[in-house]
Design a binder for these strands. Sequence first.
DNA 1: ATTCCGTTTGTGAACGATCACAATTTGGGG
DNA 2: CCCCAAATTGTGATCGTTCACAAACGGAAT
Lengths: 355, 355
Amino acid sequence: MARVRKTVTIRGVAEEAGVSLQTVSRVINGGPNVRPQLREKVQAAIDRLGYVPSLAAQRMSGSRSYIILAINDRERTLADWRDRMGTDWVDQMLLGGILTCSKHGYRMMVELVDTHSDHVERELGAALSALQPDGVILTPPHSENPLITDLLAHRGIPFARIGSDAPGAGIRLTMGDAGAAHLATSRLAELGHRRIAMIAGPAQYSLSGWRIEGWRRALVEAGLPHEGLLEVGDFGYDSGARAARVLLDRNPDCTAIIASSDQMALAALEVARERGLDVPRDLSLISFDNTPIVRFTQPPLTAIDQPIAETVSRAVEQLIARSPETDDSAVIEIAAALVERASTAPAPAKTPDHG
Amino acid sequence: MARVRKTVTIRGVAEEAGVSLQTVSRVINGGPNVRPQLREKVQAAIDRLGYVPSLAAQRMSGSRSYIILAINDRERTLADWRDRMGTDWVDQMLLGGILTCSKHGYRMMVELVDTHSDHVERELGAALSALQPDGVILTPPHSENPLITDLLAHRGIPFARIGSDAPGAGIRLTMGDAGAAHLATSRLAELGHRRIAMIAGPAQYSLSGWRIEGWRRALVEAGLPHEGLLEVGDFGYDSGARAARVLLDRNPDCTAIIASSDQMALAALEVARERGLDVPRDLSLISFDNTPIVRFTQPPLTAIDQPIAETVSRAVEQLIARSPETDDSAVIEIAAALVERASTAPAPAKTPDHG
DNA sequence: ATTCCGTTTGTGAACGATCACAATTTGGGG
DNA sequence: CCCCAAATTGTGATCGTTCACAAACGGAAT
């Protein structure tokens, strides 16, 4: 019969060290006003007993919960998982979040919430009541949903909004979407492309607008046209295929496409293949996201790498360091980078043969 | 000044419904012996106030924590994340875990732990003390680490071991590795392949052995040789490349390879390309895992789909339903499936030209 | 010495729920 | 109509920690 060792509590430590509970508590939390000698003694007792404070008890006694809650879109996440498309957002959020949280003694929890459903508030409210997180990280499109941001603001829970610069409460972080799109477009212009199309994301995402803006600005700067070169998808494969077809039908002289998601880029690649267009000889392709799959396509895709992990990491640090009334006016921007692979090349010397 | 609504507690509900705390508690937990009429009244009060019990308080008062902890290998996970290889294990664990947990009012938390480090026990012990989870899910190689399983058994925390059939405490679940390898090998034999090689995983994973066993058995049944056709890798790309080179050097007449991970299969694909071998004309390839990337390689890979999500889901259900002393003797097996894509084809009519 | 003030340590209450048990109600049989 | 057991409801005590505040300590200024 394995004697189950009784849980070590702060009381056990106090007895072991011969001090009061409060003193142990001070040592745990790095409180001030403890003589170094005593602190060491208590710390030794903690180590000897292998004591770790109970998160539940800490939370109960009015202190922090040491939990950061990351909210993701349920529908998209589940669809991606089920289709085995991978969920780079979740992966990268965890990478950035777990590491940074654990560095500060926090933990990260992932919650899936339906944006569109009319019980967002109930769902999220339940999670908040149950978990009582010290901070919440909102990804698009939740970061732009006033129902959600209002709820959090009203409850007084610090939160970070990724991919939204709409004014209002909350720390705001963006990944330089306009700049990234501008960079990608300029690069294509440098390579001699004259008709550079874009497959954008849906309008309800602010970042869709920013990317369009960056693309358009780069075209204007390069003296290139943009009429008829914009199509909108929903980030998914099918919408990307449709958009690519429309784009190529309408613009036989189009030699480059920027897609606002990897899946849409993949679709464009397939459409090009269908039509006998070689990538990158006849058509250059740049995608947004840089998820694992685009490294293994034929050819590997040039892509804009979204620094999700770093952004989430920054968000976590902001939330943890947060004093109740900090200034949220600034938008923190983490720049995205362009990863050049084999799907981009100089524009063909002449218009591709059409006859 | 946004008036921050005071948190609704069980006391508020009790007052609203005009009953005692205990009665509300009974309603929350679906306890017996509450008259339907009263139950409804209390439920109405709960709904009206939007009350949700605090997890921390529930845990404090000796009840469950409603948390399931999933342990993953830190090293591998971080490497995969950083290399942007995707982490299908984590993805699929979350898919299966989060959904099943939330169905039962539980939550899932992911913890990364170093298997090899000598402070496994301290790390895991800290997590257990802090979180006090109601159950733990162990993935390979943790599921086979006696330090970990002993720790959990000693603490009396129910746990599930995925990919281990070693006797001992804990619910055991496997994904039919032997059967899957047998299936893949038989399929290749049916296609006329005579020399079917395997790139196995490291020996410290039981599942590596099972896969080898399934492969060997299928070969024996088909009257085919297996000498010199086995190489061992570490699941990573580089080791796969090395193994593929050794295998092809040693067996110029080898026409099919089964790799024990997608990354090793990808490496084999690249090695084949280097050597001018066409996949699948000259060489058939089957991989284990079926992560997102193998659908987009050229050609898309035939792969064994590991039912991770379903396995984790089953594990969660077992853990939740667990009574302190249930029988752990049976091993639950969730069968893997073979997804046929374009990397497998009938064996070439003759030995590939070699000269 | 004495006083004072800042530093260090200790004490009881509180957090929000459940547990064990006590009190009350209910429903049938005698 | 009474009594008893079962069903229903209520009452402290309790979990492990921090909070607010009180007490003891120590050194410098008086």
